[in-house]
Write a protein that binds this DNA or RNA. Structure first.
Length: 574
RNA sequence: CGGGAUGUAGCGCAGCUUGGUAGCGCGCCACGUUCGGGACGUGGAGGCCGGGGGUUCAAGUCCCCCCAUCCCGACCA
C-alpha cells in the first residue's frame, strides 16, 4: 500500500518551465521523475513503480521465448570496443573516461561486443545453441541534443537481448520469436504501435524492423500505404522503379543559358519561366548536392522537389565516411561551382555520381553548368552526363506511390520504442565466434540484437495516455490500480486506510491519500494528475455508508456501498 | 557545431528601460478556523539576483568575458 502521507511525492501545481512535451511536463509535475542534468533523470518512487511494472512485463515475455536474464557492467574497458571499431565509430556519442592508471574506459551505449565474447568464452558446441540472453540495464549515449525529458536521455534504461545461432534459419526463428514477444509486450503495455521496415543498408541486407509509437512529438517519420499493409521508416522506403523511358525519344540538344541571380532551385524555376519561355516546376530541375566520401568529392542527384536524406546517404556509401562539401572544398576543387553544380563532365575528374532512381537514363533535366551564373537545359542522362550508381537517398513525400501497390503513401511522426535486427555474422566475424558443428568442423555463429527502451516506453505511455487533467495510466503499468481519496473531517481517513488494506489483500495495488488537512480540491486534482486508473472517493457520503468509484479515463462515477467496494473494484478490473 | 531565448527563494515569475534597503503567487513551518473541486486568518523560515572582471560613492539593474539551461536547425547549393 502506498500512503501519500509518507510517500516521497511533491506534485507541482504549475508546469515546469523547461518542459515542452506532455510526457515530460506531466511526469515532472506528478513527481515521477526529477532532472539532474540534460538527459539525466532520477526515478522517484512512483516513477520507479512504473518502470518496475514495465520491466516485469518485458521479463515475463522474454523468458517465455527462452530468454535468460543477465546483467552486464555499464563501465567497460576500451579494448573490446576498439576491436569492433566502435571506440572510433561511435564518435562523440560515446561517454569516455579514464581510471586512476590512465586506462581508457567507456560507459556502454549497447553491448553486442561483450555478449559475443561471453558466448565465445562459454559455448563451444552447436549443442549450446540456440541461445537468447537479455538484460535490463542503463545505457549511456552522449546525445548531441537530449530532449523531451526521458524520451531522449543520455542515460536511459534499455532491455537489450541477443540471439545466437549456427544457421540462418535459426536466426530467422529467433527473430520471429522476438517479433512475437514484442507484439505481446506492447499489447500488454497498452501502447499504440506499428511495425515498420527499418533501414538495413549498412549491415548488408539483414532484416530489421522497428516498433514505432505514433506521436506528434516523435522524432521518426514513417510511411504507411493508404490501401495495402506496407509500412516503413522513411529511411527504409524503396522508391518504386520509375516508368520506363522510351530509348528512341528525341531530345533537343543541350543548351547553356545565362541565369544571373538564380542559384538554388526556386530562383532557377522563376528565372527559366520568366526569361526563357520554359514551363518548369522544381520537379523538372536536378538538385546536385556535393559531399565528400573519405575526403573525395561525390555528387548526389535528386529531382529538385526532393531533399537528400543524409542518414540514408551515409548508410548507402558506408563504410566510407560522409562529410559535407564546405566552402574550402569548393575553393580546393574549382570544377564544382557553388550554386551552379552539375554532374556534366565529372567523370573526367574522378567524381562519383550517385542518383535517385527517378533520375533514370534517358530523362531530361535542367541543371547547373559548373560556371558562375549559368545553367543548362535539356541535359539528358546517359547522353550528356553519366550516373555511376543509383541509390535510395531522396526524402519521401506525402502521396508518393507505395512501392508495393502504387497507392499514395501517408506520412506520420512516431517514437521508436523497439528495434529488432538480424545482425548476421558481423560481430561473430570480428571476434571469431565459432562453435563446433555436428560435422566436427567450426561453424561461424550468426546473431540477432533486439532492443526496447524501457524508460522511453514509460514516456511514450504518458505521451499517448493523458488528458487535460493529467496522466491516465493503463492498469498494467500504473503505480497502483486504485487511488483512494479520503476527504472530510470525520473518520474518512480510517475508512480509506481500511479499504486500501482490503484491496491490497485481494492483490490489488492501492495508493491512498491519507494526508490530513488537505482540502478536497487538492486531493482530487492530485488524483487526476497522478493518473491511477480507478479513483475511490471516501467523503461526505460515508455518513450514508457510501463511497464513489470513478474511472479515471472515462470520468464515469458510480456510488457504491462501503461494504461492497472491494467486490466492485474486483469486478471493474476484471 | 550554428541560430534564438532564458538564468532572481523548493516551483512559477516580476523588478533591469531610468543604478539607491530583494519582491509577488504557490509551496514550506506554527497556531486557529475550514473540509466534495487547487479554502482562510495571524505569525514565521527561506536569496552570493548563474560565475568572474569592470564602471560608480553605490550594481539584480550599466559594460566586458565566461558558464549553464531550454527551443529550433543540424547540409538543401
Amino acid at each position: 500500500m502506498l500512503r501519500l502521507s509518507t510517500l516521497l511525492l511533491k506534485t507541482l501545481r504549475e508546469d515546469p518551465a523547461d518542459a515542452e512535451v506532455p510526457s515530460h511536463r506531466l511526469l515532472v509535475r506528478g513527481g515521477y521523475i526529477r532532472r539532474w542534468a540534460p538527459g539525466v533523470y532520477s526515478l522517484l518512487p512512483l516513477g520507479q513503480a512504473v518502470v518496475d511494472n514495465i520491466s516485469k512485463v518485458i521479463i515475463e515475455e522474454m523468458k517465455a521465448i527462452g530468454g535468460q536474464q543477465v546483467t552486464f557492467p555499464a563501465l567497460l574497458p576500451r579494448e573490446y570496443y576498439e576491436a569492433s571499431g566502435r571506440w572510433t565509430e561511435y564518435g562523440d556519442t560515446l561517454f569516455r573516461l579514464k581510471d586512476r592508471r590512465n586506462n581508457d574506459f567507456l560507459l556502454g551505449p549497447t553491448h553486442e561486443e561483450l555478449f559475443t565474447l561471453l558466448v565465445k568464452d562459454l559455448c563451444s558446441s552447436y549443442k549450446d545453441l540456440p541461445l537468447i540472453l537479455f538484460q535490463i540495464q542503463a545505457k549511456y549515449r552522449d546525445e548531441a541534443r537530449p530532449r523531451s525529458g526521458i524520451l531522449r536521455g543520455r542515460e536511459f534504461l534499455m532491455k537489450d537481448s541477443y540471439s545466437f545461432d549456427v544457421t540462418n534459419e535459426g536466426l530467422a526463428a529467433n527473430y520471429a520469436l522476438h517479433r512475437n514477444a514484442y507484439v505481446h509486450i506492447f499489447e500488454r503495455l497498452g501502447i499504440d504501435y506499428r511495425i515498420v521496415s527499418a533501414m538495413s543498408g549498412a549491415m548488408g541486407g539483414s532484416q530489421s524492423e522497428e516498433f514505432l509509437a505514433p506521436s506528434p512529438v516523435g522524432e521518426d517519420t514513417f510511411v504507411t500505404c493508404t490501401s495495402c499493409d506496407y509500412a516503413a521508416n522513411v529511411e527504409a522506403v524503396q522508391v518504386a522503379p520509375p516508368a520506363p523511358v522510351d530509348p528512341g525519344a528525341e531530345h533537343p540538344p543541350m543548351r547553356k543559358l545565362h541565369t544571373p541571380d538564380a542559384p538554388g532551385i526556386a530562383a532557377l524555376v522563376a528565372h527559366l519561366n520568366d526569361h526563357h519561355q520554359r514551363s518548369v516546376t522544381s520537379k523538372d530541375l536536378l538538385k546536385n548536392i556535393a559531399f565528400k566520401a573519405d575526403g573525395k568529392p561525390i555528387l548526389v542527384l535528386v529531382p529538385g522537389d526532393r531533399e537528400v536524406d543524409a542518414e540514408r546517404l551515409a548508410a548507402a556509401i558506408a563504410p566510407a565516411k560522409l562529410d559535407l562539401f564546405e566552402e574550402e572544398d569548393f575553393a580546393a576543387f574549382p570544377h564544382l561551382v557553388k550554386g551552379y553544380i552539375s554532374a556534366i563532365g565529372m567523370a573526367a575528374y574522378d567524381v562519383t555520381v550517385y542518383a535517385d532512381p527517378r533520375v533514370a537514363a534517358g530523362t531530361s533535366w535542367a541543371t547547373g553548368a559548373n560556371e558562375f551564373e549559368h545553367h543548362v537545359v535539356d541535359a539528358v542522362v546517359g547522353r550528356d552526363f553519366v550516373v555511376d550508381h543509383y541509390i535510395e537517398v531522396a526524402t519521401v513525400a506525402q502521396g508518393d506511390p507505395c512501392p508495393r501497390c502504387g497507392s499514395p503513401l501517408a506520412l506520420d511522426r512516431a517514437i521508436e520504442i523497439g528495434h529488432i535486427f538480424q545482425l548476421g555474422r558481423k560481430y561473430a566475424d570480428t571476434f571469431s565466434l565459432d562453435v563446433l558443428g555436428p560435422d566436427g568442423k567450426p561453424a561461424r555463429v550468426t546473431m540477432g540484437s533486439y532492443g526496447i527502451g524501457v524508460t522511453r516506453a514509460m514516456a511514450v505511455i504518458a505521451e499517448q495516455m493523458h488528458d487535460g487533467l493529467g496522466l491516465v495510466w493503463p492498469e498494467q503499468v500504473a503505480p497502483a490500480k486504485v487511488h483512494v481519496v479520503a476527504t472530510g473531517k470525520e473518520n474518512q481517513i480510517e475508512v480509506a486506510l481500511d479499504l486500501a488494506a482490503q484491496l491490497e489483500g485481494k492483490g490489488i495495488t492501492t495508493l491512498v491519500d491519507d494526508r490530513p488537512g488537505f482540502s478536497p480540491g487538492v486531493k482530487f486534482k492530485d488524483a487526476e494528475l497522478l493518473g491511477m486508473p480507478w479513483i475511490v472517493v471516501v467523503g461526505k457520503n460515508l455518513a450514508d455508508g457510501m463511497v464513489e468509484l470513478r474511472n479515471r479515463r472515462t470520468g464515469e462515477a458510480t456510488a457504491v456501498a462501503v461494504t461492497g467496494l472491494v467486490e466492485a473494484v474486483v469486478g471493474a478490473l476484471a
